[in-house]
Design a protein around this nucleic acid. Structure first.
Lengths: 258, 258
DNA sequence: GATTGTTGAATTGTCCGACAAGTTGACAAT
DNA sequence: ATTGTCAACTTGTCGGACAATTCAACAATC
């Protein structure tokens, strides 16, 4: 009754073979990071294929991040930065219509853990950058409270930067990778909440409390304030009237084209 | 004294313009998911460029996941699955020489949270799959304890599958995205630990306890057992004598070529 | 009626050859 | 030490070409 099961036959196109071949050279270290790739004609000769085919293979490498073409011209071998993947990840999540609930649940976990690790590892240099960040935000809050207009995007960017600095301070690249796409998706949400509810002062206060706890190296206090900060954000979202289980749809895009 | 600051001039190559143009068509919905891309010649005419140029642009789309060429041939518009990014993410992490400590710290956080959410959301269907998974693992453990040889890769795969099922049960795609690269990097580590320490029985016991707690919907118990399970793993790693702050180097690769 | 051939048009994969624009590196001039 | 010049090399883009596949519609068969 049951038909026999066959595994899919796949005959890769040549340009993909080129891609794999060069990729292996890079991953195995025979082509070092920063080195210039052999010229297209050289590769074409070496592989015994046409230059056009090599070019298509190189495009794959380019998009996969193993090769960058700085400025105008010569492509170099690069090691793809893990955070570069974040933009694609957040794009994929939006296309899959993830909800604010999913986003927030993940964020509250990751941000808390990040902050907690940071408490014992953050350096004076990071604390200084946090202070500088807070100063900038304080200036904007002052303007808001004087009813002067501010640029919402700038405020949100400063907010995001604060959390990014803590992420650096946590000194864990795996966690940073997990955090990045989440953090990016938060930005459009922030853009919606802030101007409607004018929660600027609350954000600033929370940041200062977190900074203090970090400076004191008090992990549980850091964790606790971060949690409250995140819950505040969720309350803000709730109060905008946006349904928490609605997808973060295309509104969130905006700077789609890299 | 200070030189004037100029913003970088960027002149994109044409193939990249093609990439952006088609990408926008897709993201804006004018090109629907599953639809076939216009033919290369059609695109070339439309953009007023050569077919070769269009092809290079399509390679970028291909690698970025917005277009797939099923089996042999015709490219279709696809929405990139977020989990597909994971292989690239783990590759990037390995190239950056992340340490087992970083990996484990992230994993313990994410797995705990995932399991905890799963406690209140997991479906009978998922519980059934967990049971089936446990049965398979039990069979292997029995063979190990009878000193019969087993395939380590199979055991590790079953282990990973157990955690994947829970991740599905947690019903949070953002968390699943964050979890995936971490989970993948754990696999090679598991391959090292298991055969050396023969911890198969311990793993199975932990899985059964977690399954029971999930079935009972007891979030704190789930969380607790998952934490212990993860800590067990770390102890296992410690006892292999591998330094926790050493990078997970190329050993972890192995199936590099997609 | 559903599966299995047939056939012809459309499309992809690959190749070749060509050329303008730009980059690189060496060397000369200021 | 910066600036100018020049030749060799590369990349980006173009045009045309052809075999191999895939697709869709239709015919044939059980």
């Amino acid at each position: 009754m049951t038909d026999a099961q066959f595994s899919v036959i796949e005959r890769m196109p040549t340009y993909r073979l080129v891609f794999n071949a060069v990729q292996n050279e890079i991953l195995s270290g025979r082509l070092g990071i920063g080195e210039r790739l052999p010229s297209e004609t050289a590769l074409a000769d070496q592989f015994g294929v046409n230059r056009s085919t090599v070019r298509e293979g190189i495009r794959l490498l380019e998009e996969s991040g193993l090769v960058t073409r700085k400025g105008g011209g010569r492509p170099r071998v690069a090691l793809p930065h893990y955070l570069d993947l974040a933009s694609r990840a957040s794009r994929a999540l939006i296309l899959h219509s993830v909800t604010f609930r999913e986003l927030w649940e993940a964020a509250v976990i990751i941000e808390q853990a990040t902050a907690e690790y940071a408490a014992s590892r953050i350096t004076p240099e990071h604390l200084e950058r946090l202070q500088e960040n807070i100063d900038r935000m304080a200036a904007m809050v002052a303007r808001v409270e004087a009813d002067e207009p501010i640029n919402v995007d700038d405020f949100v960017a400063i907010d995001a930067e604060f959390h990014d600095i803590i992420s650096e301070g946590a000194n864990n690249r795996v966690l940073a990778l997990a955090r990045e796409p989440v953090s990016r998706l938060f930005i459009p949400a922030g853009r919606i909440i802030l101007p409607r509810l004018r929660t600027h002062r609350r954000v600033l206060d929370a940041h200062m409390l977190i900074r203090d706890a970090l400076a004191a190296g008090d992990a549980t206090r850091v964790r606790d304030w971060m949690r409250r900060h995140m819950e505040d954000f969720k309350r803000g979202y709730d109060r905008t009237g946006l349904a928490i289980d609605m997808p973060l749809d295309a509104v969130a895009l905006g700077h789609a084209t890299d």
